[in-house]
């Protein structure tokens, strides 16, 4: 039995979770994809979500910003609390939720506009920023995503003209420009080369000072390198959740052990 008052990640970190998930079920039409998921996401930490493909990692992540609601046949049951407030509560404004919970996708998705406009997009949406201040904010966000030095002379080139790794960092800059609290990353490095991947991993380490990060990855080395906590998903269940070190050195569950030792997945 889970005591809903106690954080699931034990006594190692801040006792108040940033995100608390309780009894989350998820359905694609009649097909159930998640089964009573419980998890607490620690603030200013990196939580990795691992598991074989089709296990529900991305599905789980896509509940946090309610992006799944774009699709008519997808339904979530249960509750997700952000800072103690349910994201499904009527008082929770969807647009504000998505500003507070940013998302980075598998493939870089620069919008069809210039590098500058890509970053300014969200700022213009959510803030009344005078033009003079906007440039500073864009620069700040690009610096935050460790991209400024590379693109300072390319600000007015289309976002799609950058390399894959740069595009992904542009998306990170775009996400942090609106001052979110949480960053969701759905296999952010699966479409880019190893060098660019290393840069993004470094960046994740820096970003956790200011943001709570949840990252879905199919790369176990990556999870071990960058995360503080790891959740192992299997067939829609959270089979094991704990400190990354513990999960990778001393898994309690047999399935987890089989997966991290590469016996399936």
């Amino acid at each position: 039995m889970i005591d809903p008052a106690l954080p699931l990640y034990g006594d190692l970190a801040d006792p108040t979770p940033k995100i608390r998930v309780r009894g989350l079920d998820f359905f694609y039409g009649d097909q159930q994809a998640l089964f009573s998921n419980d998890i607490d996401i620690a603030p200013n930490r990196v939580t990795a979500v691992i598991g074989p493909s089709g296990c529900g990692k991305s599905t789980h992540l896509r509940v946090y910003n309610r992006i799944f609601e774009l699709y008519r046949d997808q339904k979530a049951k249960g509750d997700v609390l952000l800072n103690g407030e349910s994201i499904f509560a009527p008082t929770m404004k969807l647009l504000e939720l998505r500003r507070r919970v940013g998302m980075i996708f598998q493939k870089p998705t620069p919008f069809p506009m210039s590098v500058f406009e890509n970053v300014a997009y969200g700022i213009r949406l959510h803030y009344a920023v005078p033009k003079s201040e906007l440039e500073g904010r864009v620069e700040e966000a690009l610096k935050g995503a460790a991209l400024w030095e590379e693109v300072r002379d390319l600000l007015h080139k289309p976002g799609t003209a950058l390399s894959g790794g740069q595009q992904q960092r542009l998306c990170i800059a775009r996400a942090i420009a609106v001052e979110p609290e949480v960053l969701l990353m759905d296999e952010p490095t699966s479409a880019i080369d190893p060098i660019a991947t290393a840069k993004i991993e470094e960046l994740v380490d820096v970003l956790k000072k200011n943001y709570t990060i949840v990252i879905v990855t199919h790369n176990m080395q990556q999870a071990a390198r960058i995360s503080d906590f790891t959740a192992f998903f299997f067939k829609g269940y959270i089979v094991e959740f704990g400190e990354t070190r513990q999960i990778f050195t001393n898994p309690k569950n047999k399935k987890t052990e089989e997966y991290i030792t590469g016996r399936f997945g």
């Binding site: 404004k93 647009l95 949406l125 803030y127």
Partner: peptide
């Protein structure tokens, strides 16, 4: 933190 634009207006 700068002042947030009116979310209500955008929704309307």
């Amino acid at each position: 933190m700068k002042k947030t634009q009116n979310v209500r207006r955008r929704e309307v």
